[in-house]
Design a binder for these strands. Structure first.
Lengths: 215, 215
DNA sequence: TCCGTTACCGTACGCTGTATCTTATGGATA
DNA sequence: TATCCATAAGATACAGCGTACGGTAACGGA
Protein backbone atom coordinates (compact mmCIF):
# COMPACT_ATOMS: atom_id res chain seq x y z
CA UNK A 1 0.00 0.00 0.00
CA UNK A 2 1.72 3.05 -1.36
CA UNK A 3 1.25 5.81 1.20
CA UNK A 4 -1.07 8.74 0.69
CA UNK A 5 -2.02 12.07 2.18
CA UNK A 6 -4.87 10.40 4.04
CA UNK A 7 -2.67 7.71 5.56
CA UNK A 8 -0.10 10.31 6.56
CA UNK A 9 -2.77 12.46 8.15
CA UNK A 10 -4.30 9.67 10.23
CA UNK A 11 -0.90 8.52 11.43
CA UNK A 12 0.03 12.08 12.32
CA UNK A 13 -3.21 12.52 14.20
CA UNK A 14 -2.63 9.33 16.14
CA UNK A 15 0.83 10.52 17.11
CA UNK A 16 -0.38 13.97 18.08
CA UNK A 17 -3.23 12.52 20.12
CA UNK A 18 -0.75 10.41 22.04
CA UNK A 19 2.15 12.79 22.52
CA UNK A 20 0.94 16.25 21.66
CA UNK A 21 2.05 18.53 18.89
CA UNK A 22 5.57 18.73 20.25
CA UNK A 23 5.81 14.96 20.12
CA UNK A 24 4.97 14.96 16.45
CA UNK A 25 7.99 15.34 14.21
CA UNK A 26 8.47 14.52 10.56
CA UNK A 27 11.07 11.95 11.50
CA UNK A 28 8.95 10.15 14.07
CA UNK A 29 5.99 10.18 11.73
CA UNK A 30 8.08 8.70 8.93
CA UNK A 31 9.38 6.03 11.26
CA UNK A 32 5.82 5.26 12.29
CA UNK A 33 5.00 4.76 8.63
CA UNK A 34 8.12 2.69 7.98
CA UNK A 35 9.57 5.22 5.56
CA UNK A 36 12.46 7.62 5.34
CA UNK A 37 11.72 11.15 6.47
CA UNK A 38 12.05 12.70 3.05
CA UNK A 39 9.40 10.43 1.60
CA UNK A 40 6.74 12.56 3.26
CA UNK A 41 7.75 15.59 1.25
CA UNK A 42 6.37 13.93 -1.85
CA UNK A 43 2.91 14.25 -0.36
CA UNK A 44 3.22 17.35 1.75
CA UNK A 45 5.01 20.60 1.14
CA UNK A 46 5.87 21.52 4.69
CA UNK A 47 5.41 20.55 8.23
CA UNK A 48 2.77 23.27 8.43
CA UNK A 49 0.94 21.82 5.45
CA UNK A 50 0.90 18.56 7.33
CA UNK A 51 -0.73 20.39 10.22
CA UNK A 52 -3.27 21.87 7.81
CA UNK A 53 -4.06 18.37 6.65
CA UNK A 54 -4.64 17.20 10.19
CA UNK A 55 -6.81 20.19 10.99
CA UNK A 56 -9.02 19.59 8.00
CA UNK A 57 -9.39 15.95 8.93
CA UNK A 58 -10.81 17.10 12.25
CA UNK A 59 -13.13 19.48 10.46
CA UNK A 60 -14.37 16.53 8.41
CA UNK A 61 -15.32 14.93 11.69
CA UNK A 62 -17.11 18.11 12.75
CA UNK A 63 -18.91 18.48 9.43
CA UNK A 64 -20.85 15.32 10.08
CA UNK A 65 -23.19 17.34 12.25
CA UNK A 66 -26.38 17.45 10.21
CA UNK A 67 -28.47 20.53 9.60
CA UNK A 68 -31.42 21.09 11.89
CA UNK A 69 -34.61 22.90 11.08
CA UNK A 70 -33.97 25.70 13.54
CA UNK A 71 -30.89 27.88 12.99
CA UNK A 72 -30.05 27.79 16.68
CA UNK A 73 -30.17 24.03 16.87
CA UNK A 74 -27.87 23.81 13.87
CA UNK A 75 -25.34 26.15 15.42
CA UNK A 76 -25.47 24.36 18.74
CA UNK A 77 -24.93 21.00 17.07
CA UNK A 78 -21.89 22.22 15.15
CA UNK A 79 -20.35 23.98 18.10
CA UNK A 80 -20.79 21.06 20.45
CA UNK A 81 -19.34 18.74 17.88
CA UNK A 82 -16.39 21.08 17.62
CA UNK A 83 -15.96 20.87 21.37
CA UNK A 84 -16.11 17.07 21.22
CA UNK A 85 -13.43 17.07 18.55
CA UNK A 86 -11.25 19.40 20.60
CA UNK A 87 -11.55 17.17 23.64
CA UNK A 88 -10.62 14.15 21.54
CA UNK A 89 -7.73 15.88 19.79
CA UNK A 90 -6.32 18.35 22.26
CA UNK A 91 -3.63 19.53 19.84
CA UNK A 92 -6.48 20.89 17.72
CA UNK A 93 -6.89 23.90 19.98
CA UNK A 94 -3.20 24.70 19.67
CA UNK A 95 -3.83 25.33 15.99
CA UNK A 96 -7.18 27.03 16.51
CA UNK A 97 -7.07 30.62 15.39
CA UNK A 98 -3.40 30.39 14.59
CA UNK A 99 -3.77 30.49 10.86
CA UNK A 100 -6.84 30.64 8.63
CA UNK A 101 -8.49 27.29 8.15
CA UNK A 102 -9.21 26.97 4.47
CA UNK A 103 -9.45 23.24 3.89
CA UNK A 104 -12.55 21.93 2.12
CA UNK A 105 -14.10 20.53 5.28
CA UNK A 106 -13.29 23.65 7.28
CA UNK A 107 -15.02 25.69 4.60
CA UNK A 108 -18.00 23.35 4.70
CA UNK A 109 -18.32 23.82 8.46
CA UNK A 110 -17.97 27.57 8.03
CA UNK A 111 -20.63 27.52 5.36
CA UNK A 112 -23.07 25.62 7.55
CA UNK A 113 -22.62 27.91 10.53
CA UNK A 114 -22.75 31.07 8.46
CA UNK A 115 -25.87 29.90 6.65
CA UNK A 116 -27.56 29.07 9.93
CA UNK A 117 -26.55 32.35 11.53
CA UNK A 118 -27.86 34.32 8.55
CA UNK A 119 -31.32 33.21 9.61
CA UNK A 120 -30.90 34.46 13.14
CA UNK A 121 -33.00 37.43 14.26
CA UNK A 122 -31.25 40.74 13.94
CA UNK A 123 -28.96 39.56 11.18
CA UNK A 124 -30.05 41.64 8.22
CA UNK A 125 -26.99 42.65 6.24
CA UNK A 126 -23.79 40.93 5.25
CA UNK A 127 -21.99 43.14 7.75
CA UNK A 128 -24.24 41.85 10.51
CA UNK A 129 -23.47 38.32 9.48
CA UNK A 130 -19.76 39.05 9.39
CA UNK A 131 -19.85 40.39 12.91
CA UNK A 132 -21.94 37.57 14.28
CA UNK A 133 -19.78 34.92 12.69
CA UNK A 134 -16.57 36.44 13.96
CA UNK A 135 -17.96 36.90 17.47
CA UNK A 136 -19.14 33.31 17.69
CA UNK A 137 -15.90 32.02 16.27
CA UNK A 138 -13.90 34.09 18.71
CA UNK A 139 -15.84 32.67 21.63
CA UNK A 140 -15.38 29.10 20.43
CA UNK A 141 -11.65 29.47 19.93
CA UNK A 142 -11.13 31.14 23.27
CA UNK A 143 -13.39 28.89 25.27
CA UNK A 144 -11.92 25.70 23.90
CA UNK A 145 -8.37 26.88 24.40
CA UNK A 146 -9.24 27.80 27.96
CA UNK A 147 -10.87 24.49 28.71
CA UNK A 148 -8.09 22.38 27.24
CA UNK A 149 -5.43 24.41 28.97
CA UNK A 150 -7.18 23.96 32.28
CA UNK A 151 -7.57 20.25 31.61
CA UNK A 152 -3.87 19.93 30.90
CA UNK A 153 -2.77 21.68 34.05
CA UNK A 154 -5.14 19.75 36.27
CA UNK A 155 -3.95 16.53 34.64
CA UNK A 156 -0.32 17.37 35.35
CA UNK A 157 -0.98 18.44 38.92
CA UNK A 158 -4.09 16.56 39.95
CA UNK A 159 -7.45 17.93 40.90
CA UNK A 160 -7.01 17.47 44.61
CA UNK A 161 -6.78 20.82 46.33
CA UNK A 162 -3.76 20.04 48.46
CA UNK A 163 -1.92 18.35 45.59
CA UNK A 164 -2.72 21.31 43.43
CA UNK A 165 -1.42 23.67 46.05
CA UNK A 166 1.81 21.78 46.48
CA UNK A 167 2.37 21.64 42.75
CA UNK A 168 1.48 25.14 41.71
CA UNK A 169 1.45 26.30 45.25
CA UNK A 170 4.85 27.43 46.38
CA UNK A 171 4.35 30.33 44.06
CA UNK A 172 0.63 30.77 43.48
CA UNK A 173 -0.62 30.18 46.99
CA UNK A 174 1.95 32.62 48.28
CA UNK A 175 0.75 35.11 45.72
CA UNK A 176 -2.88 34.65 46.66
CA UNK A 177 -2.07 34.88 50.34
CA UNK A 178 -0.63 38.33 49.90
CA UNK A 179 -4.20 39.59 49.84
CA UNK A 180 -3.57 41.63 46.73
CA UNK A 181 -5.86 39.45 44.62
CA UNK A 182 -8.90 38.76 46.78
CA UNK A 183 -11.37 38.24 43.96
CA UNK A 184 -9.06 35.94 42.05
CA UNK A 185 -8.38 34.01 45.23
CA UNK A 186 -12.10 33.58 45.79
CA UNK A 187 -12.50 32.36 42.22
CA UNK A 188 -9.67 29.88 42.48
CA UNK A 189 -10.73 28.49 45.82
CA UNK A 190 -14.51 28.41 45.48
CA UNK A 191 -14.99 28.10 41.78
CA UNK A 192 -13.15 24.93 40.84
CA UNK A 193 -16.15 22.65 41.04
CA UNK A 194 -18.14 23.84 38.05
CA UNK A 195 -18.92 21.36 35.31
CA UNK A 196 -16.96 22.27 32.21
CA UNK A 197 -19.58 21.26 29.66
CA UNK A 198 -22.38 23.03 31.51
CA UNK A 199 -20.33 26.20 31.75
CA UNK A 200 -19.49 26.01 28.08
CA UNK A 201 -23.11 25.55 27.11
CA UNK A 202 -24.26 28.30 29.42
CA UNK A 203 -21.78 30.80 28.06
CA UNK A 204 -22.43 29.74 24.50
CA UNK A 205 -26.13 30.46 24.74
CA UNK A 206 -25.41 33.73 26.54
CA UNK A 207 -23.08 34.82 23.76
CA UNK A 208 -25.56 33.74 21.10
CA UNK A 209 -28.23 35.78 22.82
CA UNK A 210 -25.97 38.78 23.04
CA UNK A 211 -24.89 38.82 19.42
CA UNK A 212 -28.25 38.02 17.83
CA UNK A 213 -30.55 40.17 19.93
CA UNK A 214 -29.24 43.51 18.75
CA UNK A 215 -29.28 44.66 15.16
CA UNK B 1 25.94 46.18 33.77
CA UNK B 2 25.36 42.71 35.03
CA UNK B 3 22.33 41.36 33.19
CA UNK B 4 18.99 40.75 34.85
CA UNK B 5 15.61 39.19 34.24
CA UNK B 6 14.23 42.57 33.26
CA UNK B 7 16.96 43.24 30.71
CA UNK B 8 16.54 39.76 29.29
CA UNK B 9 12.79 40.22 29.01
CA UNK B 10 12.97 43.56 27.22
CA UNK B 11 15.56 42.28 24.76
CA UNK B 12 13.46 39.19 24.13
CA UNK B 13 10.38 41.32 23.53
CA UNK B 14 12.27 43.51 21.11
CA UNK B 15 13.40 40.43 19.19
CA UNK B 16 9.93 38.88 19.17
CA UNK B 17 8.35 42.14 18.05
CA UNK B 18 10.74 42.28 15.12
CA UNK B 19 10.87 38.65 14.02
CA UNK B 20 8.04 36.82 15.74
CA UNK B 21 8.23 34.03 18.26
CA UNK B 22 9.91 31.70 15.80
CA UNK B 23 12.63 34.27 15.31
CA UNK B 24 13.32 34.35 19.03
CA UNK B 25 15.81 31.73 20.15
CA UNK B 26 17.92 31.49 23.25
CA UNK B 27 21.02 31.70 21.12
CA UNK B 28 19.99 34.80 19.21
CA UNK B 29 18.83 36.46 22.39
CA UNK B 30 22.15 35.71 24.05
CA UNK B 31 24.03 37.09 21.07
CA UNK B 32 21.86 40.20 21.21
CA UNK B 33 22.92 40.60 24.83
CA UNK B 34 26.57 39.90 24.09
CA UNK B 35 26.67 36.76 26.18
CA UNK B 36 27.01 33.03 25.75
CA UNK B 37 23.71 31.16 25.46
CA UNK B 38 24.05 29.36 28.76
CA UNK B 39 24.34 32.63 30.65
CA UNK B 40 20.59 33.07 30.34
CA UNK B 41 19.93 29.90 32.28
CA UNK B 42 21.22 31.60 35.39
CA UNK B 43 18.24 33.91 35.27
CA UNK B 44 15.62 31.75 33.61
CA UNK B 45 14.80 28.10 34.04
CA UNK B 46 13.53 27.34 30.56
CA UNK B 47 12.68 28.87 27.28
CA UNK B 48 9.05 28.70 28.38
CA UNK B 49 9.83 30.57 31.57
CA UNK B 50 11.37 33.22 29.37
CA UNK B 51 8.07 33.40 27.50
CA UNK B 52 6.23 33.69 30.81
CA UNK B 53 8.47 36.60 31.66
CA UNK B 54 7.68 38.33 28.41
CA UNK B 55 3.96 37.72 28.82
CA UNK B 56 3.92 39.22 32.26
CA UNK B 57 5.81 42.26 31.02
CA UNK B 58 2.97 42.82 28.56
CA UNK B 59 0.45 42.41 31.37
CA UNK B 60 2.32 45.11 33.27
CA UNK B 61 1.64 47.38 30.33
CA UNK B 62 -2.02 46.39 30.40
CA UNK B 63 -2.33 46.86 34.14
CA UNK B 64 -1.72 50.57 33.76
CA UNK B 65 -5.37 50.96 32.83
CA UNK B 66 -6.85 52.74 35.82
CA UNK B 67 -10.07 51.81 37.53
CA UNK B 68 -13.17 53.68 36.49
CA UNK B 69 -16.23 54.39 38.59
CA UNK B 70 -18.52 52.24 36.47
CA UNK B 71 -17.77 48.54 36.23
CA UNK B 72 -18.40 48.54 32.50
CA UNK B 73 -16.02 51.39 31.83
CA UNK B 74 -13.34 49.60 33.82
CA UNK B 75 -13.77 46.42 31.84
CA UNK B 76 -13.78 48.25 28.54
CA UNK B 77 -10.61 50.13 29.45
CA UNK B 78 -8.77 46.94 30.37
CA UNK B 79 -9.94 45.02 27.32
CA UNK B 80 -9.07 47.76 24.90
CA UNK B 81 -5.68 48.13 26.47
CA UNK B 82 -5.22 44.41 26.03
CA UNK B 83 -6.07 44.79 22.38
CA UNK B 84 -3.57 47.63 22.03
CA UNK B 85 -0.89 45.47 23.60
CA UNK B 86 -1.73 42.60 21.28
CA UNK B 87 -1.46 44.84 18.24
CA UNK B 88 1.89 46.13 19.47
CA UNK B 89 3.23 42.68 20.35
CA UNK B 90 1.66 40.27 17.92
CA UNK B 91 3.46 37.28 19.42
CA UNK B 92 1.40 37.90 22.55
CA UNK B 93 -1.66 36.32 20.99
CA UNK B 94 0.33 33.21 20.13
CA UNK B 95 0.75 32.67 23.85
CA UNK B 96 -2.77 33.76 24.75
CA UNK B 97 -4.74 30.91 26.25
CA UNK B 98 -1.89 28.51 25.71
CA UNK B 99 -0.92 28.18 29.32
CA UNK B 100 -2.29 29.82 32.46
CA UNK B 101 -0.94 33.31 33.01
CA UNK B 102 0.05 33.51 36.63
CA UNK B 103 2.60 36.29 36.73
CA UNK B 104 2.04 39.08 39.25
CA UNK B 105 0.87 41.58 36.66
CA UNK B 106 -1.37 39.05 34.95
CA UNK B 107 -2.96 38.35 38.31
CA UNK B 108 -3.38 42.06 38.90
CA UNK B 109 -5.20 42.46 35.59
CA UNK B 110 -7.32 39.44 36.39
CA UNK B 111 -8.13 40.88 39.77
CA UNK B 112 -9.23 44.20 38.31
CA UNK B 113 -11.48 42.63 35.70
CA UNK B 114 -12.98 40.14 38.11
CA UNK B 115 -13.63 42.82 40.68
CA UNK B 116 -15.32 45.01 38.09
CA UNK B 117 -17.41 42.17 36.72
CA UNK B 118 -18.55 41.19 40.19
CA UNK B 119 -20.45 44.48 40.26
CA UNK B 120 -22.23 43.76 37.01
CA UNK B 121 -25.98 43.15 37.08
CA UNK B 122 -26.95 39.52 37.25
CA UNK B 123 -23.69 38.47 38.86
CA UNK B 124 -24.80 37.28 42.28
CA UNK B 125 -22.78 34.22 43.21
CA UNK B 126 -19.16 33.18 42.81
CA UNK B 127 -20.34 30.73 40.18
CA UNK B 128 -21.89 33.55 38.20
CA UNK B 129 -18.65 35.48 38.41
CA UNK B 130 -16.67 32.44 37.33
CA UNK B 131 -18.84 32.01 34.26
CA UNK B 132 -18.79 35.66 33.31
CA UNK B 133 -15.04 35.91 33.68
CA UNK B 134 -14.39 32.83 31.62
CA UNK B 135 -16.80 33.91 28.88
CA UNK B 136 -15.26 37.34 28.58
CA UNK B 137 -11.77 35.91 28.64
CA UNK B 138 -12.67 33.41 25.95
CA UNK B 139 -13.99 36.15 23.73
CA UNK B 140 -10.89 38.28 24.18
CA UNK B 141 -8.52 35.43 23.44
CA UNK B 142 -10.42 34.31 20.38
CA UNK B 143 -11.10 37.76 18.97
CA UNK B 144 -7.52 38.92 19.31
CA UNK B 145 -6.13 35.75 17.79
CA UNK B 146 -8.54 36.14 14.91
CA UNK B 147 -7.66 39.75 14.32
CA UNK B 148 -3.91 39.23 14.45
CA UNK B 149 -4.11 36.21 12.20
CA UNK B 150 -6.08 38.17 9.67
CA UNK B 151 -3.64 41.04 9.91
CA UNK B 152 -0.74 38.69 9.27
CA UNK B 153 -2.25 37.11 6.20
CA UNK B 154 -3.28 40.43 4.68
CA UNK B 155 0.22 41.74 5.36
CA UNK B 156 1.79 38.80 3.57
CA UNK B 157 -0.58 38.96 0.63
CA UNK B 158 -1.70 42.57 0.47
CA UNK B 159 -5.16 43.94 0.95
CA UNK B 160 -5.81 44.50 -2.71
CA UNK B 161 -8.50 42.14 -3.94
CA UNK B 162 -6.72 40.99 -7.06
CA UNK B 163 -3.41 40.58 -5.24
CA UNK B 164 -5.19 38.65 -2.57
CA UNK B 165 -6.80 36.45 -5.15
CA UNK B 166 -3.57 35.72 -6.92
CA UNK B 167 -1.83 34.92 -3.65
CA UNK B 168 -4.42 32.83 -1.89
CA UNK B 169 -6.43 32.50 -5.03
CA UNK B 170 -5.33 29.55 -7.07
CA UNK B 171 -6.81 27.45 -4.36
CA UNK B 172 -9.36 29.52 -2.46
CA UNK B 173 -10.98 31.29 -5.38
CA UNK B 174 -11.38 27.96 -7.14
CA UNK B 175 -12.96 26.60 -3.98
CA UNK B 176 -15.36 29.50 -3.68
CA UNK B 177 -16.26 29.31 -7.35
CA UNK B 178 -17.46 25.75 -6.96
CA UNK B 179 -20.64 27.20 -5.53
CA UNK B 180 -20.52 24.87 -2.56
CA UNK B 181 -19.83 27.69 -0.12
CA UNK B 182 -22.12 30.52 -1.19
CA UNK B 183 -22.43 32.18 2.20
CA UNK B 184 -18.72 32.04 2.87
CA UNK B 185 -18.07 33.45 -0.58
CA UNK B 186 -20.39 36.32 0.11
CA UNK B 187 -18.65 37.00 3.41
CA UNK B 188 -15.21 36.94 1.85
CA UNK B 189 -16.11 39.14 -1.08
CA UNK B 190 -18.44 41.67 0.51
CA UNK B 191 -17.28 41.70 4.07
CA UNK B 192 -13.63 42.65 3.87
CA UNK B 193 -14.14 46.33 4.38
CA UNK B 194 -15.23 46.39 8.01
CA UNK B 195 -13.14 48.33 10.48
CA UNK B 196 -11.39 45.93 12.83
CA UNK B 197 -11.58 48.07 15.95
CA UNK B 198 -15.22 48.91 15.43
CA UNK B 199 -16.09 45.26 14.95
CA UNK B 200 -14.14 44.34 18.06
CA UNK B 201 -15.88 46.96 20.13
CA UNK B 202 -19.30 46.05 18.76
CA UNK B 203 -18.85 42.37 19.51
CA UNK B 204 -17.35 43.08 22.91
CA UNK B 205 -20.37 45.07 24.03
CA UNK B 206 -22.70 42.47 22.57
CA UNK B 207 -20.95 39.72 24.51
CA UNK B 208 -20.95 41.80 27.68
CA UNK B 209 -24.67 42.35 27.27
CA UNK B 210 -25.26 38.67 26.71
CA UNK B 211 -23.34 37.43 29.70
CA UNK B 212 -24.48 40.04 32.21
CA UNK B 213 -28.13 40.34 31.35
CA UNK B 214 -29.13 36.88 32.46
CA UNK B 215 -28.70 35.53 35.96
C1' DT C 1 50.11 32.94 50.74
C1' DC C 2 47.02 29.39 50.20
C1' DC C 3 42.59 27.33 49.87
C1' DG C 4 37.49 26.84 49.24
C1' DT C 5 33.72 28.51 47.09
C1' DT C 6 31.21 30.68 43.84
C1' DA C 7 30.22 32.59 39.26
C1' DC C 8 31.07 32.03 34.59
C1' DC C 9 31.98 29.95 30.00
C1' DG C 10 32.69 26.87 26.00
C1' DT C 11 31.87 22.61 24.25
C1' DA C 12 28.98 18.89 23.07
C1' DC C 13 24.69 15.98 22.54
C1' DG C 14 20.54 14.82 20.62
C1' DC C 15 16.94 16.56 18.19
C1' DT C 16 14.54 19.30 14.56
C1' DG C 17 13.03 20.56 9.36
C1' DT C 18 14.52 20.13 4.93
C1' DA C 19 17.93 20.59 0.38
C1' DT C 20 20.55 17.86 -2.41
C1' DC C 21 22.88 14.14 -4.41
C1' DT C 22 22.84 8.99 -5.26
C1' DT C 23 20.91 4.70 -6.04
C1' DA C 24 17.48 1.29 -7.22
C1' DT C 25 13.38 -0.06 -9.92
C1' DG C 26 10.06 -0.84 -13.26
C1' DG C 27 8.13 -0.26 -17.75
C1' DA C 28 8.49 0.63 -22.53
C1' DT C 29 10.91 0.11 -26.75
C1' DA C 30 14.51 -1.83 -30.22
C1' DT D 1 15.45 -10.63 -24.73
C1' DA D 2 18.35 -6.66 -23.96
C1' DT D 3 18.66 -1.85 -23.29
C1' DC D 4 17.51 2.56 -21.79
C1' DC D 5 15.09 6.08 -19.61
C1' DA D 6 11.96 8.00 -16.27
C1' DT D 7 10.57 7.93 -11.91
C1' DA D 8 10.33 6.78 -7.28
C1' DA D 9 13.07 5.78 -2.95
C1' DG D 10 16.89 6.51 -0.14
C1' DA D 11 20.83 8.20 2.29
C1' DT D 12 23.52 11.87 3.61
C1' DA D 13 24.31 16.48 5.07
C1' DC D 14 23.49 21.17 6.87
C1' DA D 15 22.10 24.70 9.78
C1' DG D 16 19.76 25.61 13.75
C1' DC D 17 17.56 24.53 18.15
C1' DG D 18 17.27 23.79 23.65
C1' DT D 19 20.03 22.59 27.19
C1' DA D 20 23.34 19.13 30.15
C1' DC D 21 27.83 19.11 31.70
C1' DG D 22 32.81 19.68 32.88
C1' DG D 23 36.39 22.84 33.19
C1' DT D 24 38.26 27.54 34.53
C1' DA D 25 38.93 31.83 36.51
C1' DA D 26 38.06 35.10 40.03
C1' DC D 27 37.48 36.32 44.64
C1' DG D 28 36.94 36.33 49.85
C1' DG D 29 38.60 34.49 54.14
C1' DA D 30 42.14 32.07 57.10
Amino acid sequence: MPLSRAKIATAAIRLADAHGLDGLSIRKLAKELGVGPMRLYDYVLNRSELLDLMVDAVYAQIAEAGRRSEWRATVLAIVHRTRDAALEHEWFVDLLGGRPHLGPHALAVGESTAAALSEAPGVRSVDDLQRVVSALDAFIVGALRREITERRTTRSTGTDVTAWQTALGPYLTRMLETGRYPTVARLVIDGAHLDAEATFHHNLTAVLDGITSRA
